[in-house]
Amino acid sequence: MMKKLLLAATVATLSLSAAHAAPTLYGKINLTLDQVDNSDFAGNNVTALNSNASRIGIKGEEKLTDNISVLYLAEWAISTDGSGSDTDLSARNRYLGLKFKDIGSLKAGKYDSYFKSAAGNNQDIFNDHTILDMTSVLHGEERLNNVIGFETDKNLIIPGLQFNIMSQQGEDTKTDNTTLGQEGKRNGFGDGISTSLSYDNKDYGLSAAIAGNFGVAGKYNAYSLSGIYSDAIRVTGSFDFSKYGVDGLVFGALWQNAKPTDDTVLTVSGTGTSAVTTTFKGLEEDAFSLTAAYVIPSTPWKIKGEYVESNTSVDSRSDRKISQYGLGVDYNLNKQARLYGVLAQQKRDWLASDDKKTVVGLGMEYNF
């Protein structure tokens, strides 16, 4: 009798263990050696080894019932070069949530805004590069704290159509954010909203999305302003010509507009009688990008090109334009690893001299 009880307990324990799916360990190491001429727009050059958004994380999905599963993900930055923009083991995306079969997923934590994720790799060929990522040119590339988001299943209504909405809680009972573009305090539910509607149709090679931010903090590169609560709209799309006889050719495009939620942005420098107040009445940014990528058939080579531009206006001042254009070449060793090179230049048209920064880089990326 005792042996039977022990056998039954062992079988039950093994069954329980088997029911729990193991988490997936994943990550990416991305390193480049970059020669940057006029790196600070003040005539100085630098040779730098850059860790381009290298990361490590765990993720998983655990079935609770036939219709509900738990989702989780936790991701950290890896400073592969030991310095620079990637603070070692700093928080990247992370969330805990529930997935409802054939309906959608509810997530809570810190992760990329739906405005940001509406632009895929076909709209930003230098994505993750420390210097050339389009976040250095245009508004809206934020990862948001304290958010609750819902993502519909891509087959809920029409195959390939997905709606996403994210609510951000400001959790601040003391600060008046008027000078940062949003009047009053951010102390309630939905102080910021990020949303997107996307459509993918692989049969036609089409991918498109429209996204909006409302009261979400972002930066305006032309004036070195950050944390400005803004309303923005983004439209993106890409077209794969493989379905029409041109294997490996993809075009991408993006357009967006951003401005403060309330037109109240100002900065104060200095203290006391020497304090200087600068207003940014009428602050607004229009931006777009155009990209092309071509995978040479039956070879490991891929050629990419991009042009991205932002135009920022403020009342009673001349507009400021940032433009960036460049080429990239990939050599895919396999599905996980690639060697690549980049050649790009960024121009800031309001500078009287040293208005161009040039980057030449060689790198390797490995995904696991």
Rank of each mutant, 00 (worst) to 15 (best):
E171I: 08
D176R: 05
Q169M: 15
A209K: 02
N187P: 03
S167L: 15
I158H: 05
L180Y: 13
E171N: 15
L156D: 09
D203W: 02
S196I: 02
G188A: 11
N213T: 03
E171M: 14
S194E: 05
A211C: 09
G215S: 03
I165C: 10
G170M: 06
L161F: 11
K154I: 00
I193R: 12
S196F: 00
R186H: 12
F163G: 13
G170L: 05
S194M: 03
T195K: 12
Q168C: 03
K174R: 10
T178N: 09
N164A: 03
K202E: 15
F189H: 13
G190I: 01
A211R: 02
I157N: 10
G212R: 15
G184L: 06
N213G: 00
Q169P: 01
S207F: 01
N164P: 06
G215R: 00
T173K: 15
L156E: 09
D200C: 02
T173E: 15
D176T: 07
T179R: 13
R186Y: 06
K154A: 12
N187T: 01
F163W: 12
S194W: 04
D176G: 10
Y199W: 09
I193F: 08
A211E: 04
I157Q: 10
M166H: 10
T152F: 06
Y199A: 08
T178A: 14
I157Y: 13
N177T: 10
I210A: 11
T152Q: 09
G160R: 03
Y204F: 14
L156I: 11
N187S: 13
T175W: 00
A208T: 14
N213M: 04
L197G: 07
K154M: 02
V216S: 01
L206C: 07
E171Q: 15
F163I: 13
F214A: 11
D172L: 05
D172Q: 08
S198V: 01
G181A: 00
D172V: 04
S198L: 05
K154H: 09
S198F: 02
